[in-house]
Design a protein around this nucleic acid. Structure first.
Length: 451
DNA sequence: GCATGATCATGC
DNA sequence: GCATGATCATGC
C-alpha cells in the first residue's frame, strides 16, 4: 500500500484515528523507533500508512491533499504546551522569491495538515508513547492573514538580498527556522553572493501550543485584539496595533490613569493601561494574537538623558540543565530569544519626573546580535561546567559568570526573590538563581530612532 | 557613576 | 511556591 491508497481526506483521517491509543512499539515493524530525530513520524508513515517519505514538494497524501505531521506536547506548569516548533519544508531561496503566498511551496504542501499528537514524557522510551488525537487542520482565516504577511516578510528579505539576515523573530506565526546538520548548512540566495543558513518554514511553538489547546483538546478561545480580520488586508498586525495605540502617545501615566478611571497604581499598571487603550477586557499578553505569536510586552523607562535605568531580565536558568547543553541553537535560551517578538512599551521621563507614554515598538533580536548572545551563552556553559568560582565580598558573593562589561549585548546576573532563593550547581554547591540579561545600553541602542 | 549583587512586591 | 517586573545598595 502507498500514500496514494488514501484518496480522500476522509480516508486519511479514518486510518489515522485507528492508531489512537496503540503504543508505538506495537506499530513499529522495522525497529526504526530507536533511531534519532523524526523517528516517530517515519514509523507512522512507513509502518502505519505504508508509504516512504515522498517527493519533497508534494504533500504526503497527494491525492487527498494532506500533509502528515506528528507533533509532541508536554504538560507544563501552565497546562498543555507544544514541545517544539512544527517544521515544514526547506525554503529554496532561489525559487521561492518570485512566487506569491498562494503559489508558494509552503502553501502547496501544508495548506491542510493531519495533526497527530502524542505526549512526550521525559525518561520514557519512545515505544511507550501513543498517539492520542488525530485531526485535520486547515488554517482559520484570521490566522492566514498573519501567516501570509509572515511569508511576505521572509520573502522580502530574500528579494532584498538579505536571506542571511532572516531570523525567526522577524515574523509572528510562520517562521523560517534553521534546519540542517549544523551551522554550516548553507544555501545560495538569488540577490547576494553571501551564503545564507539553510532554513525551513515552521510554525512557532507558541502557535502550535494554541492550536493543540484549541483543536486537539478543545480548550476555549482567547479574546482577539483584531475583531474583524478584514482590518489586516491593508495593514500588518503590528501596524494595526500601533495605529490603535498612537492616539495615546504623549499622554502621561497620570493622564492615562485618569482617562480610564484607574485609582491605584498596581505593579502591572502598564499592562492594564495597554488593555484599556486597545479596548479589550483582559491583559494584552492573554489575547489570541499575543499567545499564538508569543509576543512578550516589556515596559521600558527612558531617563531624561536618554539612558535606560534597568537591564532586561529573562527566566532564571537551571544550572545543571544549562551545563548539559551542547549546541547554542538547541539551547533553551536560543529557543526563547530567537523566535520571540517583543513589544517595547516606551515611557519617557519628562522634566517633572513624570512618565510619558512615548510609543510602542516591536522588536526582535537581529541575527548578528544573536550570535553574540551565543558567545555569552557558551562562556556561561563553560564556566558552570568547569565550576563557578564563588568568593565572599563586602557586597555579596561574587562569581565569574559573564559580566555586563564583557559584552555589548548580554550578561548573566542574579535574579532571585531573596537570599534563600538558590539553586544547585552541577558539583552540588548552591548558588543564587541567575538568568541572562540584555544590557540596558544595548536596549537604549535598539530603541534609538533614526534621525 | 555605574556595574554588580541583592531583594522586594505581586499575581498566578 | 515561584516567576516576574521593579528597584535598591554600594564598592570599585
Amino acid at each position: 500500500m502507498e500514500g496514494t491508497a488514501y484518496r480522500t481526506k476522509g480516508d486519511v483521517l479514518r486510518r489515522a484515528q485507528e492508531i489512537v491509543g496503540i503504543p508505538l512499539k506495537e506499530v513499529d515493524a522495522s525497529g526504526r523507533l530507536a533511531t534519532g530525530k523524526g523517528a516517530i513520524g517515519t514509523v507512522i508513515e512507513e509502518s502505519w500508512f505504508g508509504y516512504s517519505p515522498n517527493a519533497e514538494a508534494e504533500p504526503d497524501f497527494p491525492e487527498a491533499g494532506v500533509e502528515l505531521k506528528v507533533t509532541p506536547y508536554v504538560h507544563g506548569k501552565n497546562g498543555i504546551r507544544a514541545k517544539e516548533r512544527l517544521v515544514c519544508n526547506i525554503i529554496n531561496y532561489m525559487e521561492e522569491y518570485d512566487r506569491t503566498f498562494q503559489t508558494s511551496s509552503f502553501w502547496h504542501k501544508c495548506n491542510t495538515m493531519l495533526l497527530m499528537s502524542y505526549e512526550h514524557r521525559e525518561n520514557v522510551p519512545k515505544g511507550d508513547f501513543r498517539i492520542d488525537k488525530a485531526v485535520l487542520f486547515s488554517f482559520p482565516e484570521e490566522d492566514l492573514m498573519i501567516i501570509e504577511h509572515d511569508w511576505e516578510t521572509i520573502m522580502q528579505k530574500v528579494r532584498d538580498g538579505r536571506a542571511h539576515e532572516i531570523t525567526e523573530g522577524d515574523t509572528l506565526y510562520l517562521a523560517a527556522c534553521t534546519k540542517g546538520a549544523n551551522a554550516s548548512s548553507v544555501r545560495k540566495q538569488p540577490f547576494s553572493d553571501i551564503l545564507a543558513k539553510q532554513r525551513a518554514y515552521s510554525l512557532k511553538s507558541t502557535y502550535m501550543t494554541q492550536i493543540l489547546r484549541k483543536y486537539i483538546f478543545g480548550i476555549e478561545e482567547d479574546e482577539r485584539i483584531v475583531k474583524d480580520w478584514h482590518a489586516l488586508v491593508h495593514a500588518s498586525f503590528e501596524e494595526h496595533l500601533i495605529e490603535r495605540l498612537s492616539p495615546y502617545y504623549g499622554k502621561t501615566q497620570r493622564e492615562l490613569k485618569q482617562l480610564f478611571g484607574i485609582e491605584k497604581s498596581p505593579k502591572n499598571l502598564n499592562d492594564i493601561l495597554l488593555g484599556k487603550m486597545l479596548g479589550i477586557h483582559g491583559r494584552i499578553a492573554q489575547t489570541d494574537e499575543f499567545k499564538k505569536a508569543g509576543i512578550v510586552p516589556k515596559t521600558i523607562r527612558v531617563r531624561r538623558d536618554g539612558t535606560i535605568k534597568e537591564c532586561m531580565s529573562f527566566p532564571p536558568f537551571d544550572f545543571i540543565k544549562l551545563s548539559q547543553e551542547t549546541e547554542w541553537e538547541e539551547s533553551e535560551f536560543y529557543n526563547y530569544l530567537a523566535p520571540t517578538k517583543f513589544l517595547f512599551v516606551i515611557f519617557q521621563e519628562n522634566a517633572n519626573g513624570e512618565l510619558v507614554f512615548e510609543r510602542v515598538q516591536f522588536w526582535n533580536i537581529p541575527v548578528s546580535d544573536l550570535e553574540e548572545v551565543g558567545r555569552v551563552w557558551k562562556r556561561t556553559v563553560d564556566t558552570i561546567r568547569r565550576g563557578v568560582v564563588l568568593r565572599e565580598t563586602a557586597r555579596g558573593v561574587s562569581n565569574d559568570l559573564p559580566k555586563q562589561s564583557e559584552s555589548r549585548i548580554a550578561h548573566v546576573r542574579p535574579h532571585a526573590q531573596d537570599g534563600r532563593d538558590r539553586a544547585k550547581l552541577p558539583d552540588g554547591r548552591m548558588m543564587t538563581k541567575q538568568c541572562f540579561w540584555l544590557n540596558n545600553t544595548y536596549i537604549a541602542e535598539q530603541i534609538r530612532q533614526p534621525k
